[in-house]
Design a protein around this nucleic acid. Structure first.
Length: 266
DNA sequence: CGACAAGCCTGGTAGC
DNA sequence: TGCTACCAGGCTTGTC
């Protein structure tokens, strides 16, 4: 379930392990993850180049190759990165879908168990973001409360699905949206048009704080504050605040977990 | 065996 | 009437 904090973790991982190494060859184990690019083109563009720096926007990770192109990684629900060295580094990895083999015998492995992730190339990150209709990154400094209010203005759907809409704000998924609603004490069925300006301002501040905290830990659930609901988000879970059993319901086809006592319907 | 989880795209439709 | 926003369904596969 890679959302913004998890992708931020992949970014740090790639930065620490896979930059400035010359790429000898690229292999694609399953072409279904490729978007508007062929395996042959990907290999051609990356051969003899090295990854020099990375950028993240929402749930997308971009890695600049020295050849001038950007490798675009989206992780779907089950994607992740891993680096290996030596023979057999990916032999034990059934879900290695894309592998960059470096000259120094290291490799960057993009894993994707359910093949819902996407790999692409772009020459212009800004244009890619615009073409995919992505809204501002949820941690963008320019995304202040009044800007969020403007983005939500005129919307009438459920707040939860609206926050998960990547064309409005990029980065939040099902899991962190539940946590955000929990921290704001908003019932998951709350609709956007029920919020006043003050509530949107609070929502914005809590969203930033939550995502910054989670991103610092690379989305590692074990390191999140004890006051958070997220690690308990299942039918065994109880509310870290009041101890009530957590409940779930479906909002736009997605499971929403919440505390029935702390998150009252308005 | 069928249900379910997740992100996101598609297509039908509800609502202004 | 016409457009947009909304939402259910499908993709995918491992797990229960």
């Amino acid at each position: 379930m890679p959302e913004l904090p998890d992708v931020a973790g992949f970014k740090s991982y790639l930065d620490a392990n896979a930059l400035h190494q010359r790429i000898e060859r690229t292999s694609v184990a399953d072409g279904r993850i490729l978007e508007e690019v062929t395996g042959a083109k990907l290999a051609r563009e990356l051969k003899d180049a090295s990854l020099e720096k990375t950028r993240r926007h929402g749930k997308f990770l971009f890695a600049a190759a020295s050849s001038g192109t950007w490798l675009v990684l989206h992780f779907g629900m089950t994607g992740s990165l891993r680096c290996g060295r030596g023979r057999g580094a990916e032999a034990d990895d059934d879900h290695a879908v894309l592998v960059l083999h470096f000259r120094n015998d290291g490799r960057l492995i993009y894993r994707c168990r359910r093949l819902l992730g996407r790999v692409s190339l772009t020459t212009d990150v800004g244009r890619f973001i615009a073409a995919h209709g992505l809204g501002p990154d949820a941690l963008d400094r320019e995304l202040k409360p009044d800007r969020l209010a403007a983005l939500l203005a005129g919307r009438r759907g459920a707040l939860k699905s609206t926050l998960m809409n990547q064309s409005i704000v990029a980065g939040l998924g099902n899991v962190y949206t539940d946590e955000l609603l929990f921290q704001c004490r908003l019932h998951p069925a709350t609709h956007v048009d029920e919020l006043d300006a003050e509530e949107i301002e609070h929502l914005c501040k809590v969203m930033k704080r939550m995502l910054r905290t989670a991103a610092r830990h690379g989305g590692d659930l074990g390191q999140l504050p004890r006051s958070w609901m997220l690690p308990r988000r299942d039918d065994q879970g109880d509310c870290p605040r009041c101890g009530s059993d957590l409940e779930s319901l479906k909002i736009s086809g997605r499971t929403a977990w919440y505390c029935p006592r702390c998150q009252k319907r308005p």
